Amino acid sequence: MELTLTRIAKRKTYTIGHLAIDDKPFCDTLEPTWRDIGWGRKGRKVAGRTAIPEGRYPVVVTFSPKFQKWLPLLIHVPLFTGIRIHAGNTANDTEGCILVGQNLKPGMVLNSNIWTHRLVKAITEARGRDEAIWINVR
Rank of each mutant, 00 (worst) to 15 (best):
A51S: 09
I52V: 11
I52E: 02
P53S: 00
P53Y: 00
E54F: 02
E54S: 08
G55K: 00
R56Y: 05
R56I: 14
Y57P: 05
Y57A: 06
P58S: 01
P58H: 01
V59M: 04
V59S: 06
V59T: 02
V60F: 08
V61T: 14
V61L: 08
V61P: 02
T62H: 11
F63P: 03
F63L: 11
S64I: 08
P65C: 11
K66C: 11
K66G: 13
K66E: 13
F67V: 13
Q68Y: 15
K69N: 12
K69I: 08
K69Y: 12
W70E: 14
W70R: 13
L71M: 14
P72W: 03
P72E: 01
H76N: 15
H76R: 14
P78D: 09
P78I: 06
L79Y: 09
L79G: 09
L79K: 09
F80E: 01
T81F: 10
G82M: 07
R84P: 01
I85R: 00
A87M: 04
G88Y: 10
G88H: 08
G88A: 09
N89P: 01
T90F: 04
N92R: 14
N92K: 15
T94R: 00
T94S: 05
T94K: 01
T94A: 02
E95S: 10
G96Y: 07
C97A: 10
C97V: 07
I98M: 00
V100K: 05
G101A: 11
Q102R: 15
N103P: 08
L104W: 12
K105R: 12
P106F: 08
P106L: 04
G107F: 01
M108E: 13
M108L: 04
M108D: 02
V109R: 00
N111P: 06
N111L: 15
S112M: 08
N113V: 12
N113E: 14
N113Q: 13
I114V: 14
I114A: 10
I114Q: 12
W115N: 06
W115R: 04
T116R: 11
H117R: 14
R118H: 10
R118E: 13
L119I: 10
V120I: 09
K121N: 13
K121I: 11
A122D: 07
T124C: 13
T124L: 12
E125F: 14
A126G: 03
A126Q: 08
A126N: 04
R127P: 07
R127W: 10
R129C: 06
R129P: 03
R129H: 03
R129I: 05
D130V: 08
E131T: 04
E131D: 09
E131Y: 12
E131I: 04
A132M: 13
A132N: 11
